[in-house]
Design a protein around this nucleic acid. Structure first.
Lengths: 290, 290
DNA sequence: AATAGTTTTTCATACAATGAAAAATGATGG
DNA sequence: CCATCATTTTTCATTGTATGAAAAACTATT
C-alpha cells in the first residue's frame, strides 16, 4: 500500500496562536460536512494523520455528539450536536432576528421563496430560507449551504458592495465557472455588472446559476453603513418573467431590505440611487455611495 | 485497576482516548450554544481555563468560522461554520430523508405543525419541524432544540420504547420538574403511563409542557426493529380538542410513522418483540385507538 | 491623564498529543 | 472451520506543543 503521498505540509498558514489538535479536529469536521459517511481509514488518509490520532479525535467528537457512528458498520458521520450549534447560531444572529418578520411578510406578499444570506470568502452562505407558497420547490438552496457569489442574485449584491479590488483579484485567480448559458464568464463583465448593481441598488438573476430560476436581491445595511447581508425573492422563470418589469417584486424586496436595515440601526443618509463618485472605494458604506 | 491515579478532578470523566484540547474546545462551543455573546474573560472563567488558553482556542475557532466576533466589541458568538455543519447533518441523516416526504404530507393533511425527533440523554432533540399552515405559531420547538422527554408527546413515545430500568433510574435521580398542571410528576405515574403508550403504540400530550398545546406522537422503527425516532402532530388545544377523539389525526400520524419505518427497512411483522414485558404487539397497530 | 479592566504576546516547562507498531477485532473466502 | 487480509483499538516512548503565569499592549472610564 502506497503511503499517503498527500503532502502533510498542508498545515500551512497555521496562525500563530491556533492549537494544532483543534485545527485538525475542525478540518475533520469540515471533511464530514458533505454528509457522506466514511470509515476511520478513509478519514485518516484524507486528512493525512495517523489512524491513531484520527481515532482519538473521532472518539472525542463522538463523546460530545459531534459525530456518530452508523451502527456496527463503523462509518462516521456528523452527529446531533451539530444541529444544536446551528440553532444557537440562529438565536444569536441579530441579522436573522431583524430580518425574519420582514422575510415572512415578503414571502406572503410575493408567494415566492425568500432568502437571507451573507458573504464569506466570496461565496454566498444562506442564513435563512422561507419556501414559497406556490406548488413545487426546485430551489437548490439550503440553509447553511454555499453557492458561488458571482452567479446568484444575492451574491452579486454582496459583491457589489465589497472592495472591487479584492473581488477582481479573487475571481481572476479562481475563474468564473459557467453553470448555465447566462452565467457571467469574464471578470471584466462581472465587474461592470457589479458597478451597475451598485448603482441600481439591487441585483437581478436571470438563471445564471439555475437556468429556470429568476431572482431579485437587495442589500441589507447595518448601523455602520456596511452591507452585512442580502435578501432575495426567487422563483421559476414562468412566474417571474419578464423580470425587469416585475417592479412590484423589486419594490417590495427593496422595501423589505430597507426595513431590515433600519432595524439594524442603519440611517438612510440618502437614497442609494446616486452617481458613482465615491471618495472611498473600499467598504460598502452607503453614505459613500453617493 | 488502570493506573489512572491522575487527578481528573476538573476535566471529569475524560475518557481514555479523548484529546484534552479538543474536549475543551467542544465544551467552549456548547457553552456558546445558548446564543448569548460573551467576552474572553467571561468564557475563560466559565470554562475554568486561563485566558491565554481560552484565547487560543477561540482564535482557532474563529479562523475556521466556528465563532465570530461582534465587531470591535470583542464579544464572541457562534459563527457561520455551525450552520454548514447542521446542513451536512441533515443531508447525511437517513431518518430525516426517509421522513421528510411523509412529514410534508402529514402537515398538509392536518394543517398542523409536525415534528421529527430523536432521544439523546433522556431528552428530546428536534430534527425537523414543519410549521402548520394555520395562522400563528406558538410552538417553542426549534430544530436542534432540546426538551425534557417526560412531558412531551415525542419524548414519551421515545421513552416508552427505551429500557424501563434506565428510564426509571434516570428520572428518579433528576426528578420530574412540573411545567404545567398536566405535567406528570411522579416517576411511578410516568412508568405506568409509558407502558400504556407502548401498548397503544402512540402517545398523547395534553399540555404537559405547554399548557395550550396538544399533540399526538408515534414511533419510527428502523430495520433492526429499534425505535430510532418519533414523529408528532401538534397544535393549539382549540383545534385539537378533544384529543382522544381526533382519531383522524391519530390514524394519520400512525400511518405516516409506519411508512417512514418501512422506508427504513422495518418489517411490519411482529417478530422482534422485546424479551421483557412482552405485552401485545407494540408495533404501530391501530387496535388501541379511541 | 491616570486607573482599571481587558485582550494579546512572550516564555519556560511539563506533560499531553503524537506516530509507530503491536494487539484485537472483524470480514472474506477457500 | 481455519487462514488471510483489512480495519480498528490499544500500548508505548518520545518530542513538541499546549499550557498557565506573567508581562505587554490595548480600551474604556473617570
Amino acid at each position: 500500500m502506497p503511503k499517503s503521498k498527500s503532502s502533510e505540509s498542508q498545515d500551512q498558514a497555521t496562525s500563530r496562536y491556533s492549537i494544532r489538535a483543534v485545527e485538525r479536529t475542525l478540518r475533520l469536521l469540515s471533511m464530514l460536512s458533505d454528509g457522506k459517511r466514511r470509515t476511520l481509514t478513509e478519514l485518516s488518509e484524507a486528512i493525512g494523520l495517523s489512524s491513531s490520532t484520527t481515532f482519538r479525535i473521532l472518539v472525542t467528537l463522538e463523546r460530545n455528539r459531534y459525530v456518530e457512528r452508523d451502527g456496527q458498520s463503523g462509518y462516521y458521520q456528523l452527529g446531533l450536536a451539530c444541529l444544536e450549534l446551528a440553532q444557537a447560531y440562529h438565536i444569536g444572529s441579530d441579522i436573522r432576528q431583524a430580518a425574519l418578520p420582514e422575510l415572512e411578510k415578503l414571502r406572503d406578499e410575493t408567494k415566492e421563496t425568500v432568502h437571507l444570506a451573507v458573504l464569506d470568502k466570496m461565496e454566498v452562505v444562506y442564513i435563512e430560507k422561507l419556501s414559497g407558497l406556490c406548488a413545487v420547490q426546485v430551489m437548490s438552496s439550503r440553509v447553511g449551504g454555499r453557492l458561488p457569489a458571482y452567479c446568484t442574485g444575492l451574491g452579486k449584491v454582496l459583491l457589489a458592495y465589497s472592495d472591487p479590488q479584492r473581488v477582481r483579484a479573487h475571481f481572476e485567480q479562481t475563474g468564473l465557472v459557467p453553470y448555465t448559458a447566462a452565467t457571467i464568464q469574464k471578470v471584466d463583465d462581472l465587474m461592470a455588472h457589479l458597478e451597475e448593481v451598485r448603482r441600481q441598488g439591487y441585483a437581478l438573476d436571470r438563471g445564471e446559476h439555475e437556468a429556470e430560476v429568476r431572482c431579485v436581491a437587495a442589500p441589507v445595511f447595518d448601523g455602520t453603513g456596511e452591507v452585512v447581508a442580502a435578501i432575495s425573492v426567487a422563483g421559476p422563470a414562468g412566474r417571474m418573467e419578464p423580470l425587469a418589469s416585475r417592479t412590484d417584486i423589486i419594490e417590495r424586496t427593496l422595501s423589505a431590505a430597507r426595513t431590515i436595515s433600519s432595524r439594524l440601526g442603519h440611517r438612510e443618509v440618502r437614497q442609494e440611487v446616486h452617481p458613482y463618485s465615491s471618495q472611498d472605494g473600499h467598504k460598502g458604506r452607503s453614505s459613500g455611495l453617493g
